[in-house]
Design a protein around this nucleic acid. Sequence first.
DNA 1: AATGAATGAGGCTTCATTCAT
DNA 2: AATGAATGAAGCCTCATTCAT
Lengths: 214, 214, 214, 214
Amino acid sequence: MSAIPAPRKRRKEARPSELLEAALHLFVEKGFTATRLEDVAARAGVSKGTLYLYYENKDALFKAVIQEGIIPVIAENEAIAAKHSGCSFELLELLLQNWWTKIGQTAFAGIPKLMVAEARNFPELARFYYENVISRGRALVAGALRRGMESGEFRSMDVETTVDVVIAPILMLLIWRYSMSCCQSAESDPQTYLRIHMDLLRQGLRKPEKESRV
Amino acid sequence: MSAIPAPRKRRKEARPSELLEAALHLFVEKGFTATRLEDVAARAGVSKGTLYLYYENKDALFKAVIQEGIIPVIAENEAIAAKHSGCSFELLELLLQNWWTKIGQTAFAGIPKLMVAEARNFPELARFYYENVISRGRALVAGALRRGMESGEFRSMDVETTVDVVIAPILMLLIWRYSMSCCQSAESDPQTYLRIHMDLLRQGLRKPEKESRV
Amino acid sequence: MSAIPAPRKRRKEARPSELLEAALHLFVEKGFTATRLEDVAARAGVSKGTLYLYYENKDALFKAVIQEGIIPVIAENEAIAAKHSGCSFELLELLLQNWWTKIGQTAFAGIPKLMVAEARNFPELARFYYENVISRGRALVAGALRRGMESGEFRSMDVETTVDVVIAPILMLLIWRYSMSCCQSAESDPQTYLRIHMDLLRQGLRKPEKESRV
Amino acid sequence: MSAIPAPRKRRKEARPSELLEAALHLFVEKGFTATRLEDVAARAGVSKGTLYLYYENKDALFKAVIQEGIIPVIAENEAIAAKHSGCSFELLELLLQNWWTKIGQTAFAGIPKLMVAEARNFPELARFYYENVISRGRALVAGALRRGMESGEFRSMDVETTVDVVIAPILMLLIWRYSMSCCQSAESDPQTYLRIHMDLLRQGLRKPEKESRV
DNA sequence: AATGAATGAGGCTTCATTCAT
DNA sequence: AATGAATGAAGCCTCATTCAT
C-alpha cells in the first residue's frame, strides 16, 4: 500500500530476484554442475541456508531461472506471431530481433549452451526446457515457414527439418560465445553474423521463378 | 618368428585402442567431468591403475582420443582441398561428405558437443582442440569460400563470418544429437537435414545475375 | 547478555584449537605425510569435511599449528633477550629454559623432528618454518654469543657456526625422543642431558686466562 | 677365475651393488616412504620386477643398504678403539675422523636423517638400525669417555648421557644437510663446524686443575 | 526469516607387490 | 635371470544438503 516499503521489507521481497540473478550469472559462467550453491548465495549476499528457504534445491533454482527469464520471451514471440500480417520472412526477422534483444544481448544468452552441455546428465531439466522453450520456439518458426510455403513466398521443403537448419546458426552464435570463444583472438561481430545468416536465408528460401527442384 | 605374438604381448598392443574406445564412449555419453576413469577402465576390461600405465591422466586420455580420432580426418580434408580443381561449392560438399562419414556417422560425432560443454572449465583442452581441429577446419571452409568469391561463383561476403554461419548447422546437428535429442519424440533425419542445409546454401551463396545487394 | 554463549556458538569457537591439538598430536606421532586428515578430524570429534571449514588444506593446518604453538615462544625469547642485562651465558640459559618449558615439555617438542623429516619433500613448509622459527631462533643465540665474545666472557669463534654447534644437542634431544627412542630400553633423563650440555658449554665457551688458541 | 669375466656375467654380479647404490641415492634424497621402487630400478638400469629377484621387498632393500654401507664402518671404528693406546680425546678424534671420511663425506651421510625421519613409522627398520649401528656406535664413544674419566683426563660425568651430548652435534650436522639446509643461503662449512665442536669438547671435557664440580 | 556449522559420499591419482611370459 | 603389465587399496579434497539456533 505505502509507496516506499521499509528497507527491511523491500530487501526480503527482492531476495528471489537477487538469487536468480546470481544463479543465472554463475550457471552461465561455469555451467550447472560446476556452479556451487555457496557461490550463488554469496553473490546474492545471503547465506547458503537462506537459498534453501526460497528454492528447494539446485534443480528448482535452475527451473526458476528459466521460468522467469526465458519463457516470457517465448510468450512475447507467440504474441508477435499471432498479430503479424506481413510477409513470412519479415516475421522470421521480427522473431529473431526480439529474441536477440531479450536473450542474445542479456545474460540469458548463456542458457542455450548450458542446456546443451548438461541435458544428458540432467534429463529432467532438459525435459522442462524442451517443453517450455524449445518446442514452443520451434513451433513459432515452423509456423512462419509453413505460412511462407503456402503463400508461395518460400519454396517447399520439409518444415520440421528446415526449422532446425534455420535456427542452428542462431543457437551456435550463442553457444560459441560461451564455449570456444575464449580461444579465439578476434571474435566475429554478432551483427554481421546475423545479417549474413538472414541474407543467405532470404535468398536461400525464396522460391525460384522457373525452377522447382528440391 | 611366429606370426602370432604371445597373448600378453598382443594384449599390450591392443590396450591403447581399447582404452581410447572406452574413453570416447563415456566422454561422449556423460561429458568429460562426469566420466569416471574407473568406468573407462572397466569398460576396457582393466583396472583403474592400468589406465595410468598408458595415459598420464584424464587430460592426456582426452587429448589422445582427439589425436587419434579427429585430427586425421582434418588432415584428410586438407588433402582433399589441396587436390580439388572443380567448382567451389563442390569442394564444400566433398569436405562435408568426408567429415560426415568419418565423424558424423561414428562415435566421434559426440566430440563437438563435449568440447562446447567443457571448454570454459578446461581451457587447456579447449585450446588443444581449437588449435588442432577448429582453426584448421575453419581454414578449409574459408579457403573454399574465398576461392568461390574470387571466381565469381559466390557473392562477396565477409569470409570469416560466413564460415561460422556455414558451419553452424553442421555442428548443431551433432550437438543436438548428444544433448536435447533425448527429449524429442521424432528425431529429424540427418540426410534430409544436410541436404536442406546444402540446398539453402547453394542458392544462398550463389551470385545473382544482375543484383548485387548485400 | 548471558555469560554462557549458546552451545553451537561455543563449539564453533573451540573448534580451531581442538583441531590444532588433534593435528599436532598426529603430526608429531606419525609425521606430516603419514597423518590422515580424516584421523585428525576424528580425533577432534568432527567429520572430514568440517576440518576444511577451518583450514584450507593440509599445509594450512600445519602452518597454523606452528603459528599458534611455536612462533609465540620465539617471540617470548626475543623479549627475554631484549630486556636481559646480565652475563651472556646466563642469557643462553634463560632462552633454553623458556624453550624447554614451552616446547620441550609440551607436545610441540615433536615439531623439530617433523620438520627435519619432511623438509625436503615439502619445501614450502620448510621455508615457512625456516623463516619464522629457525632464522629467528638462530639470531637469538647468535646475539648472545656475539655479545659474550665482545665482552670477553667467551673466546672468539665463528659465530654462525658456533650457533649451530650450541643448538645441535638441544634439537637432537627432541629429535631423538620422537624417533629412535622407541628402541632404547632406558631413555636418558632430559634434565641430566641439558645440564651436561650446559656444563660442557660453560667451560667450553669460556675464554681461558692466558691461552688464546682457536 | 679369469681376470676379465664375460660382460654378461660381470653385469649380473654387479646388479646387487648397482641396486644398492641406486637405493641409497634415492632413500637419502627423498626418504624411505617417498622413494618409489620403480625409480630405484630405473636408476640401476633394470626393471621393477628384477629388483624383487634380489631383495624381497622395500624393507629388505633398506636393510641391505645399511648392512653394506654403514655396519662395516662401525666395525672399523671398533678395531680402531681396540688398538688405541694414546689419550682418550685423541681416540674420540680418530673415531670421528673415520666416521667423517667414510660416512660424512659419502652418500651415506644421509642415512641418519632418514632413520630419524622414518623410525616411528617403520619400527622394525629402526630396531635393525639401532642394534647394528647406534648401540655399537654409542658403546665406542662411551668406552672412550669412560677411559678418559678413569685416567683423570676428563672430569666425571654420567657417561651414557654425555655420549648423547657428544654425538648430537655430529648427527645434527648431517641431519641438517639433508633437511633444512635447502632454506639456507649460506651453508656453514663442515670443517669449521667439526673443529669448533671438538674445540668446545676438548676444553669442556677436561678436568679442571682444582675444581671438581659437576 | 536467516544463519552457517556440520556432514559424508565420491573421484583422481600413486605405488608396492605379484606373476605370466 | 629378467621383464613389465596388471592390480587395488589408500588419501586429499569438494560440495549439495540438513538442521540447530
